[in-house]
Simulated scan of single mutants.
Amino acid sequence: MRVCLITPQPDHPLLAAAAGLLRTAGHRVETLDPGTAAGPPAAPLADVYLLKARTPRALALARGLERQGAPVVNPSTATTLCQDRTAMAELALRAGLPFAATRTHDSLGVWAASGDPVPDGPVVVKSRHSRRHDLVARVDDAARLRELAAQWPQEPVVVQDFAPNSGWDHKLWAVGRRVFAALRRSELTPEGRGPTLPLALGELPEGWAELVLRVGEVFALDVYGVDVIDTGDGAPLVVDVNAFPGIRGQAGAPEALADLALTRAAAHHG
């Protein structure tokens, strides 16, 4: 099989380890850098493409490959949807997932200047468009809102009510039907984001692993992350979904990714 990685960083630990497993098994692994590629490659196409990039050029490249009939993991439409937190929330809530209620403002600066008061109790303000180093902050009062608006005046944002929790986020990932888990101190705590701690699946509250797989079905994702907080007595609240995250340090994740790539390639030919 020929497996192609769509990424500018083929040395990413997850990709490099999965690629090593595939090559050891006799498969060919190539890399397509969306930052330098002029467009979709000419035939013959690879048997499957792994889309580990979310830039406009990467998404355009993936769409071009899909138009030629190539299987792409994750599909470009699913990857694009996960970058828009408004669309993400709408889809999740329509599907009945326990997702945080989400409101949208086209401009943080306009909202802050509008006189529309901050809702009772703290809220979480996030960039509408998910990307590296985007805005994620807790807002308790109008003064904090004005402070953020001065730094991000033109930023489209979503607003979610702050749900009381332990201060730890459950970082859950799926590769195909394999679920992985870890704990990470929330970046909204006074101490800021802390290290990622391993978490056995058996330590998750009942039904959480099944919830992760349901998210994948709703969003048409094969490799993805789900951020969940425990609001009490094991009640989950999904606050974010990410297409093809890093999944660093999770034993078995490279093997799961290599198996998934071969399964998708075989299904395409089968």
Results as ranks from 00 to 15, higher is better:
residue 1 M to G: 09
residue 2 R to M: 04
residue 3 V to L: 05
residue 5 L to Q: 03
residue 5 L to D: 02
residue 9 Q to A: 12
residue 12 H to I: 09
residue 13 P to S: 11
residue 15 L to E: 00
residue 15 L to H: 03
residue 19 A to S: 14
residue 20 G to W: 01
residue 21 L to H: 07
residue 24 T to G: 14
residue 26 G to P: 01
residue 27 H to T: 00
residue 28 R to S: 11
residue 30 E to K: 01
residue 35 G to A: 10
residue 37 A to R: 06
residue 38 A to D: 05
residue 39 G to T: 00
residue 40 P to S: 07
residue 41 P to Y: 01
residue 41 P to E: 05
residue 42 A to M: 04
residue 42 A to F: 05
residue 43 A to H: 10
residue 45 L to K: 02
residue 46 A to Q: 01
residue 48 V to T: 03
residue 52 K to E: 04
residue 57 R to P: 00
residue 57 R to S: 08
residue 58 A to H: 04
residue 58 A to W: 02
residue 59 L to F: 04
residue 63 R to G: 03
residue 67 R to V: 10
residue 67 R to N: 03
residue 68 Q to M: 15
residue 68 Q to G: 09
residue 70 A to S: 08
residue 71 P to T: 05
residue 74 N to C: 08
residue 79 T to C: 12
residue 80 T to C: 12
residue 81 L to E: 06
residue 83 Q to Y: 03
residue 85 R to V: 01
residue 96 G to M: 06
residue 97 L to S: 07
residue 101 A to P: 15
residue 103 R to D: 09
residue 105 H to N: 03
residue 106 D to L: 13
residue 108 L to D: 00
residue 110 V to M: 10
residue 112 A to W: 03
residue 115 G to I: 13
residue 116 D to G: 05
residue 117 P to N: 14
residue 118 V to R: 12
residue 124 V to S: 05
residue 128 R to F: 10
residue 131 R to Y: 04
residue 131 R to W: 06
residue 132 R to M: 10
residue 137 A to K: 03
residue 142 A to H: 13
residue 143 A to N: 04
residue 143 A to H: 13
residue 144 R to K: 15
residue 149 A to V: 03
residue 150 A to I: 10
residue 153 P to H: 10
residue 156 P to F: 13
residue 157 V to Y: 02
residue 157 V to P: 07
residue 158 V to G: 02
residue 159 V to C: 06
residue 159 V to Y: 04
residue 160 Q to F: 06
residue 162 F to A: 13
residue 166 S to E: 09
residue 170 H to F: 13
residue 174 A to N: 04
residue 184 R to F: 11
residue 185 R to W: 05
residue 187 E to I: 13
residue 191 E to Y: 01
residue 193 R to D: 07
residue 194 G to I: 02
residue 197 L to Y: 12
residue 203 E to Q: 15
residue 204 L to F: 11
residue 215 V to Q: 03
residue 217 E to N: 12
residue 218 V to P: 11
residue 218 V to W: 12
residue 220 A to I: 06
residue 224 Y to R: 02
residue 228 V to M: 09
residue 229 I to T: 05
residue 230 D to P: 04
residue 232 G to Q: 07
residue 232 G to D: 03
residue 232 G to Y: 06
residue 233 D to W: 08
residue 233 D to Q: 14
residue 235 A to E: 13
residue 239 V to I: 15
residue 241 V to I: 11
residue 242 N to D: 08
residue 242 N to S: 12
residue 243 A to C: 12
residue 243 A to T: 05
residue 243 A to Q: 01
residue 244 F to I: 06
residue 244 F to L: 03
residue 244 F to G: 00
residue 245 P to Q: 11
residue 245 P to E: 05
residue 249 G to S: 07
residue 249 G to I: 10
residue 250 Q to R: 11
residue 250 Q to L: 15
residue 251 A to L: 14
residue 253 A to G: 01
residue 261 A to K: 12
residue 262 L to M: 14
residue 262 L to Y: 09
residue 264 R to G: 00
residue 264 R to P: 01
residue 265 A to V: 10
residue 269 H to A: 15
residue 269 H to R: 15
residue 270 G to P: 02
residue 270 G to Y: 10
residue 270 G to E: 07
